[in-house]
Simulated scan of single mutants.
Amino acid sequence: MTRVVLLLAPGVHLLDLAGPAQVFSTAAGLGRPYRLDYVGERELIHSAQGLPLGAETAWPPDLGRDDLLVVPGWHSARRGPPPFGDGTLARIAAHHAGGGTVASVCSGAQALGEAGLLDGRRCTTHHELQDELARRFPHTTVVRDVLFTTDDRVVTSAGIASGIDLSLHLLSVRHGPALAAQVARSMVVYARRNGDEPQASAVLRYRSHLDDTVHRVQDLIDTRFAEPLTLDRLAADAGVSARTLTRLFTRATGGLTPLRYQQTLRLERAEHLLAHGATTDTAAHEVGFTDPRMLRRLRARNAPA
């Protein structure tokens, strides 16, 4: 069972909290082993929108490296330090030091900074809070105009609804793009805001359209991206000709063919495996490349200039 611990500050924004909670609870409803815990320094937390929320003051015991700690943002974060005591900040830092992932939504990045997790790392926050974050934590690199950043298991997202995008990305990294796409469709969140973020999941970047035929084909590719998939097979499953599918797909995704979309998913998954210690040969085999040289060529082609 993977725990998702949501740390609630006084004045927590409801959507900062509800977005990640909905993503992971939807994944749990689809059979993934997620359990959500709501923790705070007091049992009753008043949200920024006035709704009172209950929280546990005792943290779940024995959080492990596969568990996720999420800090949603709160109102008036620019006034003084984050509303957490030293003990809570120490727990945030300890979870990361133990190999766990720590994520923030909006002003929640302030708590990560106070816990010492932003020094030397890239991060982001709500556009109205970016200057303040950079001032408070001069040893971090605040990335502007992006939905979220990831840097050594420290994941920060921009304002409010971007917590949904962050959480879908984490699902895609942990379980592959098919689950993230399934959760996104269940939540009716195909559209991407600011889709130029290079670290965003391909499942999300290329779902900002309303073409049901293309969505069906993407669902198939997302589920079986490591398998050989011919254009004729995809077209037959969609009930259209290969020529029509190519035309619809490239129009909906901004220029990608079905094959290029599949390669993008393979490359994204391979990069994750490589970052976690896999060899190029192992990663290539895992994502469906019979020849590791193909993975090397794709990585070189997509490397920053």
Rank of each mutant, 00 (worst) to 15 (best):
L273N: 00
P258F: 15
V217W: 11
L204N: 06
V155L: 09
T290S: 14
R205F: 05
D291P: 12
P258N: 14
S167Y: 14
G239M: 07
H215I: 08
A303F: 10
P20Q: 08
V189C: 12
L117S: 01
G99I: 03
G54H: 01
D219G: 15
P228V: 07
L256Q: 00
L273Q: 02
Y206C: 02
A109M: 02
L248W: 11
L69S: 07
R192Q: 13
R185G: 15
L44I: 03
C106F: 07
P72K: 04
H139P: 07
V39E: 02
N194L: 12
G255N: 07
G277V: 13
L15K: 00
G19L: 09
L69M: 09
R121A: 13
L7Q: 05
L210E: 03
G85V: 08
A180I: 09
Q218N: 11
R153N: 05
F24K: 01
A184W: 02
V5R: 00
G277T: 08
A181C: 11
G195C: 14
T57D: 01
V214Q: 02
T257P: 13
T140F: 03
F249E: 02
S104E: 00
Y190T: 06
A283D: 00
L267C: 12
E197M: 09
A55E: 01
D151C: 10
Q22D: 13
L168K: 05
P83M: 13
P258C: 15
S47E: 07
L133V: 00
N194F: 14
T246K: 12
